[in-house]
Amino acid sequence: MIPNANDYKFVAKLGNLRTVVQLLKSVNFKETATCFGTDNGLKITVEDAKCMQASAYIPVDVFQEFKLKEEVIFRINLNVLVECLCMFWSDINSQSSSVAAQLFYKGTGHPVTMLIEENGIITDCSLKTQELGELLDFHLDAEDVLNKIVLQTDLLKDVLAELDGTSEFIELLLSPEAPYFRISTDGIAGECRIELPRDSDLVESFECNTTANSCYKLAHIKPAMKALYCANKVSMRTDDCGLLCFQYMVKTDAGQTCYVEYYISPVIDVE
């Protein structure tokens, strides 16, 4: 039943299924995902309409086993991967879970095979890989970063939960002078401005050099909030073009650190 590991370019055994499922779910706002297997671990990237991109990073130490002959890239249906990993979801929440999940990939043109085993019951999932599409290269160079804030997620959770859903856009103002950090929406109920303190205990660092005001689609911000519920800390950065990056730090039960990252392009011309 267990395939011969030597035939495969990539073999991995997942530990800590709970965190992995959480990470995958938090980037699962679109069906298709591109996965990169490198010596650092596995990165899963999802892109929407060429203007937002999310990646989940699962470092090598989260895996119980990670064998890579060469770097691999494959594109699969993420919904199916998540459903498969959840086949035992009721049990993996408990510490004593005996679920084992293994991934196998032979290379271009082959499916990704996942074996899930629990108490001798084996589920074999063969996920068809798709033609690789082009992914945009979103990145923030250190010298272009205008503002950088590091927060405890609790602060953003409360703010974002109360955002006016009828507003199409959300405006973000970051500034070295008052009001420092402001989130505004404009919906049916009226305009709403939320000013956040910069010296609260929940704000770990606040580095703003220039006043920057940019506007984003609320529909793009919403998916980026999913990771809030499993993360401890989040860093927000913007660059001179208004590109916004959320980087969440997610701790596994065993203490390893994973990351989820979202890049969101600004809306240039609201009018």
Binding site: M1, I76, N77, N79, V80, C84, M87, P111, G120, I121, I122, T123, D124, C125, S126, L127, K128
Partner: peptide, 12 residues
């Protein structure tokens, strides 16, 4: 399905 084949095996 179009995207995957999934099979659960029960033995014995």
């Amino acid at each position: 399905t179009d995207h995957a084949t999934i099979a659960t095996h029960f033995q014995g």
